[in-house]
Design a protein around this nucleic acid. Structure first.
Lengths: 346, 346
DNA sequence: AAAGGCAACGCAAACGTTTTCGTGTTGACA
DNA sequence: TGTCAACACGAAAACGTTTGCGTTGCCTTT
């Protein structure tokens, strides 16, 4: 087992000083052609690579980005990570990920773990618990210490930083409008409680779209799911709620769901109730997932371009890191949504 | 903006030496009660946190695990990451992820980027291209330099290290046996080319299960998909192949697919050809994904316990890192599969 | 009063780099 | 022969820690 070789060892072996070795390897013209060649040959032979940690300490930057997300087993988030990793790697950065698991304390702990020198900046999406508690001190403190943050998707006005969001309002208006175009007259929405900003915005888009189409809003058509009760493994409550929704509004002919799982579940429930899709009820979801693509019928959906969000977030952060003259002039980038039509609409 | 405070600054402020500060903070009994309190109070006030990079350099360990996987937008891999992150965090480690994107060179580059001091050890799953080229020098060299590796799922005999695998052979035998029990007599398999070890093993399990049930093996029932041609977005080739498979073997009444996507696609194609599931054809897949759970009909599947694989991998690696006396005695942990019955079988 | 002991603290090395600033040697030139 | 520049290299500081050991000053002991 040959351990990693250091400058010191090379220096000792070649009987020169450490600084000579360092300079020789970096092609400094202070060093004679002779010794340079000798050092480089030796370094190559022993496969010398500078120690990243030492470099980080010296340069006071790690070339590493910290990602904090609520959940990784999730298509949207993993696609965002892919996007981040793509441009990060291209620009010489690594990514280190922490999962908050939708918990406030885990979010705080994870950030503290990374904020002490391990990374140069954060890209994150806020956990639900944090959104509920509205406690954002860990974000502001981090920023105050000079560590930049880029928030994506789940953002919050109280924190002043770069943000990358989806145009949730416009996206859901697009979806509802399409349902109207396709002939729907009684359109329900399955959404989340309002503290999740994206849920609130999508609901608002639904409402505005109805108004613009002169369709009267009806409270019983709005199903706000308590997602504390709904996990990937336990859809019972969700299904019951949807059954109630459909049965108490027999004339529903369109459903807009703020995420993939709700949409798929709605289709499943509808079918169980003897309704055909898209003939009796048309359904549109909101998200990027695989479920939509491979469901039967495949689901018409509002794509969020998750990977692009990741890419953009990484670009924002790295630009911020590498260009000094920013003077906390933060921007919010809006990623346009795209309506992908499949077979759950006519 | 108040930058992070260092020992040196505290020392200067309190007019003591750096070492006194350090010792005071670590409750050394060399330091008087008085100064200790003073220092600790000051440190608390300024929210002092030791710099991780400096600690890493000093201790020659980073408390960070490097993960290299072929793809992150994939339920299996993201679940493994979740498992890794869970135990890593519990034991005070961070995880840094690199994506090989199934490419040999990206795998090598990513590993080199991390191997120079950034991490203490690797947990990885080999890219397809690497498996094809059978070039494993980057693994062996890394291990030779004293950096431990744990491989999971896609492993290789040529490299001597800890491994965590699924019992692919047994798992697929379970699946095929179940199909036989449920009355299937003509069972097809949809699998991958043999260089993917898990594909090969699952195919072998299929073959052995048929033998044990005295069912004659028929070459035309084995569909080896060239997954270079199949992406999540382009299932055309796959569908055509499956159409051919079913049409040239009209009596097929059971299909075993080595992954979720193949299984779902098989169901879709079968339905298009007018076959009912599970009445005419029963289908079992292999994997952990969401597709199986939410498909219609939901898919009976061999669960790999991906998260458990991640947890086990992390435990192996960290144990290896923290217990010195290992003496390259590597182990291979086999995670048992579990057959989850849903509605694609009778 | 001298010796010893202990409490409380500082020095310096070490981890592996990069880089600034010497310093010694050579050769050229007046 | 003396001066000076160019050349080639080394010493040391710095990044932020931890820690073994040396160094004070004071108190106890005989």
């Amino acid at each position: 087992m040959k351990r990693k070789v250091t400058l010191k060892q090379i220096a000792k072996e070649l009987d020169v000083s450490i600084s000579t070795v360092s300079k020789a390897l970096r092609n400094s013209k202070e060093i004679s052609e002779d010794t340079r060649q000798k050092v480089q040959a030796f370094a190559k032979l022993y496969n010398y690579r500078p120690n990243n940690i030492a470099l980080s300490l010296k340069n006071r930057k790690t070339k590493t980005i910290g990602i904090i997300i609520p959940e990784i087993v999730h298509h949207f988030f993993s696609k965002v990570i892919r996007g981040i990793e793509l441009v990060a790697n291209k620009r010489g950065y690594n990514v280190i990920v922490g999962l908050s698991n939708e918990s406030f304390s885990k979010e705080v702990i994870n950030m503290e773990m990374l904020a002490n020198g391990s990374i140069d900046g954060f890209i994150l999406s806020i956990s639900k618990e944090t959104l509920q508690q509205q406690d954002y001190h860990h974000f502001t403190e981090t920023i105050n210490q000079g560590m930049p943050i880029v928030m994506f998707d789940r953002v919050v006005n109280e924190v002043n930083c770069d943000k990358v969001i989806v145009d949730d309002l416009k996206g859901s208006k697009k979806a509802v409008n399409r349902l109207v175009e396709k002939g729907c007259e009684t359109i329900a929405i399955i959404t989340t409680k309002d503290y999740v900003s994206v849920g609130r915005l999508r609901t608002q888009g639904y409402i505005e779209a109805l108004e613009e189409n002169n369709i009267k809003l009806k409270g019983s058509l709005i199903l706000k799911v308590d997602d504390a009760l709904v996990s990937d493994d336990d859809l019972e409550f969700l299904e019951k709620d949807i059954v109630t929704l459909i049965e108490s509004n027999k004339n529903i002919d369109g459903i807009f769901a703020v995420n993939e799982l709700y949409a798929i579940t709605a289709m499943k429930v509808a079918r169980k109730l003897g309704l055909r899709i898209p003939d009796d009820i048309q359904v549109i979801g909101f998200t990027d997932g695989v479920l939509s693509k491979h469901a039967t019928p495949s689901l018409t959906t509002v794509s969020q371009h998750a990977q692009e969000m990741g890419e953009k977030s990484a670009e924002l952060l790295i630009n911020n890191l590498e260009i000094e003259e920013d003077e906390d002039h933060y921007q919010t980038v809006v990623i346009e949504t795209e309506l992908i039509e499949r077979n759950s609409t006519k």
